[in-house]
């Protein structure tokens, strides 16, 4: 049985899918990249609700993208389903190993250690001449069993895939957040020791959260790779990971839709800052960031509460 909210999400997704046919291409591209980043941020939000901030989600973002790039190049395939699957497996494998170590860390040490891992991947990729070193390489455009979803010379497939994946991931995470295991996150943030006393393995729960976040990040990376058509090690650089944290805090951690919408707003903000002030866009971005932190301490999502109050 579908609830009102579920119907709304399905309807919104269908509307967005259809809107892709009429919206300007730059906008659908922006939304695709933003949703890809939004998925990474969604994973980050799961960790943040447990009190952990990863400055290294770029590791999985980049790994997912490179998995897609390498796989499609080696096996000469552009099947979008296969490529996303490869990214998921890649994120799963790496995170289940790295997570064993990282799930023991908290606070800033978790942040810095996760960053160290992503910087090591960055270093390895920069050293790999076969993978194009810091220039990276181009990735083939995706198709669905040979169908590229071309409309007026524009490829809408990755846009649609991004919308569908964002909705599916959003729905799953929404359920997860409400499950006992999802809820434990907040308890861990508030007081880890008490959670342990209740007989729950904190490390195990964080381990699972870490893997979920990693898989989301690699899916985000795979979408970016297919949409942009080019990948480079910059995706694993600490500034990329920092941007995800930036979006997460800007959007707020209150709802699964917050990171997705927040990412779109962030991308819009940045592209117009670029356009309006090519020489001082960083300053505009900085001022916007500080304004949000000052006036909306709980992120952009807290606006919805204000709207709700206004509506009632």
């Amino acid at each position: 049985m579908l609830s009102k909210n579920q119907i709304f999400v399905v309807a919104a997704a269908a509307l967005m899918i259809l809107a892709g046919l009429v919206m300007p291409y730059w906008f659908s591209f922006l939304v695709t990249v933003a949703l890809a980043k939004g998925l990474v941020v969604l994973g980050l939000v799961i960790l943040m609700r447990a009190g952990l901030v990863s400055f290294g989600q770029g590791l999985y973002y980049c790994a997912g993208a490179y998995a897609v790039g390498a796989f499609s190049d080696y096996f000469q395939t552009d099947n979008v389903l296969l490529l996303v699957l490869v990214a998921i497996v890649c994120g799963l494998v790496i995170s289940s190993i790295v997570g064993l170590l990282l799930s023991r860390y908290r606070d800033i040490f978790f942040a810095m250690f996760s960053m160290a891992f992503s910087m090591i991947l960055y270093g390895v990729l920069v050293k790999s001449a076969a993978l194009g070193s810091s220039d990276g390489f181009n990735v083939t455009k995706p198709s669905l069993f040979g169908w590229a979803a071309e409309f007026n010379g524009t490829n809408l497939l990755s846009y649609w895939v991004a919308i569908i994946l964002a909705c599916v991931a959003g729905a799953i995470i929404w359920r997860y957040m409400r499950s006992p295991m999802g809820m434990t996150g907040e308890a861990i943030r508030e007081n880890e020791i008490r959670v342990e006393y209740l007989g729950v393995s904190v490390q195990k729960i964080i381990y699972i959260k870490y893997i979920i976040a990693a898989v989301l990040a690699s899916v985000g990376g795979s979408i970016t790779a297919m949409t942009v058509g080019h990948i480079d090690p910059e995706m694993a650089y600490w500034t990329t990971s920092g941007e995800f944290v930036f979006i997460a805090l800007m959007a707020g951690t209150g709802h699964v839709a917050a990171p997705l919408i927040g990412a779109v707003i962030f991308e819009l903000m940045r592209t117009f800052a670029f356009q309006l002030s090519p020489y001082t866009w960083q300053m505009i971005l900085g001022i916007a960031l500080l304004s949000i932190i000052i006036f909306l301490p709980n992120g952009l999502w807290s606006l919805t509460d204000k709207f709700k109050k206004g509506a009632n």
Partner: peptide, 21 residues
């Protein structure tokens, strides 16, 4: 603590362009 990192990141962005100006 994390919010404070972001706050100082915002300051960094502003200062970077201020230096340039």
């Amino acid at each position: 603590e994390v919010v404070m990192i972001l706050v100082t990141y915002g300051i960094l962005l502003i200062l970077e362009d201020a230096i340039k100006l």
